[in-house]
Computed example of a mutant assay.
Amino acid sequence: MINGSTSGSVSQHIGPVRTCIGCRTRTLPSELLRVVAIDGSVVPDVGKRLPGRGAWLHFDLECLRNAERRRAFSRALRVQGSLDVALLREHLEQQGTLASGQPRGQQATRKQVDPS
């Protein structure tokens, strides 16, 4: 290490960095949702304190779909077999609805009118 610089995706060390298992983007834990496996289900760990191995996911249904398609939950959480993501999907849909008043991806778009 020369002059405190590091190699890799993150150029400056500003705290812990986690990887979203859906899109594989590295970012701060505050921008991600921690999830854990409990009784065959993937459960959101909002307080980031539930016991067990955790994985990280953006608050985005697209990242959830990518993680499901790639079967990333069982690998990241080191669980045999498939996991039920219904609770996680419900949580993400609720967060999207609360954040904007309507589900993500369905926000009203403003049309721009040509003033001439």
Results as ranks from 00 to 15, higher is better:
T109A: 08
D114C: 07
G81W: 00
A99H: 08
L33A: 04
G52P: 09
T97S: 11
L32Q: 10
H91A: 15
A67G: 03
S5R: 12
A67D: 02
P115V: 06
E93R: 14
A67Q: 06
R26L: 02
T25Q: 15
A108C: 11
N3L: 14
A67M: 07
G8S: 10
S7A: 13
R104C: 09
L98G: 06
G101W: 01
R110H: 12
R34G: 06
D60I: 01
R75P: 01
R49W: 01
T6W: 06
L77E: 05
S5V: 12
A37K: 05
P115A: 05
Q107W: 13
L83M: 08
G40D: 04
K111L: 15
K111C: 08
V85N: 14
A108V: 15
V85D: 12
R69G: 00
L57A: 01
C23G: 03
E90A: 15
T27V: 03
G52D: 02
P51M: 01
L83C: 10
S30R: 15
S116H: 06
R70D: 14
R53P: 02
T27S: 11
E62D: 05
Q80S: 14
W56F: 02
L88H: 09
R104F: 09
R24E: 12
G101A: 07
G40Q: 07
D45P: 00
L77D: 08
G15K: 02
K48I: 03
G4M: 10
G81Y: 01
W56I: 02
P29F: 12
I14Y: 10
R71Y: 05
G22H: 11
Q107K: 14
F59D: 04
G105C: 08
V17I: 13
H13E: 13
L61V: 10
E93P: 00
N66P: 00
S7F: 11
V43G: 00
F59L: 09
H58E: 03
G101L: 01
W56C: 03
T27Q: 14
A72V: 09
T19M: 08
S9G: 15
E93I: 12
S11G: 04
A99E: 11
